[in-house]
Amino acid sequence: MLEIRNLKKSFFHQPVLDGISFSIQEGDSVSLTGPNGAGKTTLLKILSGITSKDSGEIMQSFKSFLYLGHAPGIYAGLSPVENINLIANLHHCALDSQRVDKAFSDFGLANHKYEASRVLSQGMLQRLKWMLASLMDWELLLFDEPYSALDEEGQSLAGTLFQSWKGERKTILFVDHNTERSQKLSSRQFILQGGLLEEDSVL
């Protein structure tokens, strides 16, 4: 369970999040939409502890979460496999090297395993995020624009993965600009606008 009460955050004395409250239950897959600059990324960053909140309460019972931001969020100088191992270590998560190998070939990144991540294209970096999410143990996933820069093959890989997470009743909160896709993927839809959050219950 993740419960937010009256969360506030301002930039340049302008409130971006102006008293947001919501709660997410285990097994929910929640999409977060809203116009540009509505504070979607800020909300995700506050939930993951990267950005500080001005006020409000965040209560949660999830043992572990994984945040995948808009930027690659990995060390450009390290190779993908080094980055994966590092992030797993930071999350106290033991990775089986055979599973990692298999994931690299499943996601079509086997040839780039040992190169500096700097040389990877946007699409490959995005695949790497999905791969990371598939390898790690997490109870809550915070994913900012999971589908950006993915090609068709990548999108279908991602779609399969997403459905399997839903099957396992894992909790996901993600930002997506594509309304049609996010409605299909999510069980609940949040809309962030004018600093306030509403749940879209039209469906």
Binding site: F11, F12, S52
Partner: peptide, 8 residues
């Protein structure tokens, strides 16, 4: 980068 962080 923004005044709220400058305060901290």
């Amino acid at each position: 980068d923004y005044p709220e962080r400058a305060a901290r």
